[in-house]
Design a binder for these strands. Structure first.
Length: 217
DNA sequence: GGCCAGGACACCA
DNA sequence: TGGTGTCATGGC
């Protein structure tokens, strides 16, 4: 039984056709998305939501109000999503940085016109690594990038792609072979999360039926 | 009661 | 460059 060869964009279409779920990030503002991206690190979305709710009760998720809190004042608000020491510091640093640009991401894009330069700047924050940097580029700065997180690597590993073993290798592989609109890139990320949470669960990538008929090249 | 979740980082060889 | 310990809460 020969497997059908598909490219990374084909994987996106396959997820859409197979499961038909929405990949949209449910958030009111980009501030909420950034907070979610920081707080969810190595934590469940459930615990993240508890923190965001508490932050919302105190600050209204207003970036100006948040930027006036110290890292110490942030700790009890984000306690339930774990790693409160490092995450509170990161949130503090992030909103101070945004404040220095009058909370205007377009002003940041003006200073960092190329995606690589902005990505390097994001990686300078302690607490922002490859995955969070790409999430910020994708949802805050509207850059067409691929987030090669653990679920993405499991997904592409399941399709037999050797590059999926390494974050940057998979990111480059997918980006070089895929032409999507910004909204589709954002949806792609959401589709992969849905796949990981809802369909992969505890299964290893090779145990999922989706992988039986296809290989990615 | 151990294990892990939508990571990142410091330290080590 | 690659492997390992650490940070921490909440749900199962």
């Amino acid at each position: 039984m020969d497997k059908q060869v598909i490219d990374p964009e084909g994987v996106y279409r396959l997820l859409l056709d197979t499961y038909g779920l929405s990949g949209k990030w449910e958030a009111e503002t980009k501030w909420e998305i950034a907070l979610g991206a920081f707080l969810v690190q190595n934590t469940t979305w459930h615990n993240t939501q508890i923190s965001i709710k508490k932050l919302g009760e105190v600050t209204g998720l207003d970036p100006i109000v948040i930027s006036e809190l110290t890292a110490e004042e942030l700790v009890p608000l984000i306690y339930s999503s774990g790693f409160h020491s490092s995450k509170s510091r990161l949130i503090f640093e992030w909103f101070q940085w945004m404040k220095s640009y009058q909370f205007d991401e377009l002003a940041i894009l003006h200073d960092y016109p190329d995606e690589e330069g902005l990505r390097k700047r994001l990686l300078q924050f302690k607490g922002i690594g490859n995955e969070t940097a790409d999430v910020l580029l994708l949802y805050i700065f509207d850059q067409a990038v691929f987030v090669a997180d653990n679920y993405a690597r499991k997904l592409f590993t399941g399709f037999g792609l050797a590059e999926a073993a390494d974050y940057m290798s998979l990111k480059r592989y997918v980006e070089e072979r895929t032409q999507l609109s910004l909204e589709e890139w954002q949806d792609f990320r959401g589709q992969i999360l849905n796949f990981g949470k809802v369909f992969l669960r505890g299964k290893g990538p090779h145990e999922h039926e989706l992988f039986e008929g296809y290989v990615v090249q």
